[in-house]
Simulated assay, not measured.
Amino acid sequence: MSNLSLTPLFRRSIGFDRFNDLFDYAMQSDTPNYPNYKIEKTGDNNYRIVVATAGFNEDQLEINLENQLLTITGKAIEENSDSTVEFLHKGIASRSFKLSLRLDEHIEVQQANYENSLLKINLQRSVPEEAMPRKIPIGRKTNEQIETSKTE
């Protein structure tokens, strides 16, 4: 399945060069599944990433943003092995992790909160006016537009 080619799609698109990289990343078999996380849309231009970080303290977590790549890192502290404790089931993972998510160019990180072992990162889409959709008129200049341009 790694031989999937999206070349025919690129013939009718401009500026979607990273789209192919996204598919290549998604097709990899070693896609990380730890820690669990979800991405929520909380409004028209608002999003939230929620990462389940059970077993971590706030000071063990780090969030970095560089070149639109949001990286969430958790550094586990080595547990002192207590010889009097015998685990019957150890279901809380306490291993270090690094979760990377690529953000769209107009997505900005607003804030991050840590509560009840959940790391919540609020994002907002801020599209500048020049990047907003606009209608392009078709046709010749009217007499009114010609006179206006002569006076300028």
Rank of each mutant, 00 (worst) to 15 (best):
I72S: 03
S83P: 00
N116S: 12
I49K: 10
L69V: 14
N64L: 15
T31Q: 15
G91Y: 04
S96L: 08
T31P: 00
K141G: 00
A54L: 13
N64Q: 14
A112T: 09
I77G: 00
D59T: 10
A131Y: 06
N46E: 15
L119W: 02
L61A: 06
A93T: 14
R95A: 06
T53F: 08
A93V: 14
Q111L: 07
P128A: 12
N116K: 14
Y114D: 04
I39Q: 08
L88F: 07
P128Y: 10
A54H: 07
P137C: 05
K90V: 05
N80R: 13
G74A: 10
D44L: 11
N33S: 12
E79I: 03
I72W: 02
E86T: 13
F56R: 09
R102T: 07
N36Q: 13
L103Y: 01
N64H: 10
I77H: 02
V51E: 02
I92Q: 09
L65E: 09
Y114M: 06
I121F: 06
S94A: 05
K75M: 08
K90I: 05
G74F: 07
K141T: 01
V109M: 15
D104G: 12
N57I: 03
Q111F: 02
N33M: 11
H106W: 12
A76P: 01
L65G: 03
G43H: 08
T73E: 11
Q60I: 06
T84D: 08
A131L: 10
L70P: 00
E66Y: 05
V85H: 08
P128F: 11
G55C: 08
P133V: 13
G91W: 01
V50W: 01
N67M: 11
P32I: 15
E40D: 14
F56A: 10
P137Q: 10
E115V: 14
D82A: 10
P32L: 14
N80I: 15
P35D: 09
E108W: 01
T73G: 02
I72N: 02
L103H: 01
Y114G: 03
A76Q: 07
E86K: 12
R102H: 01
L101N: 03
E78T: 08
D82R: 10
Q124P: 00
K120M: 10
E130R: 11
V109Q: 11
E40F: 12
R48D: 02
S94E: 12
E105N: 10
T71A: 11
E129K: 12
L123S: 05
I138W: 01
N122C: 02
E66C: 04
E79F: 01
L118P: 00
N113Y: 06
P35R: 11
Y47F: 15
L103E: 01
R102F: 04
S81F: 05
Y47D: 04
P32N: 09
I39A: 13
K120N: 06
I77L: 12
L88D: 05
S117N: 15
I49L: 15
S126H: 05
R102E: 06
Q68M: 08
L123V: 08
I121S: 07
G74P: 03
L65T: 10
N36R: 14
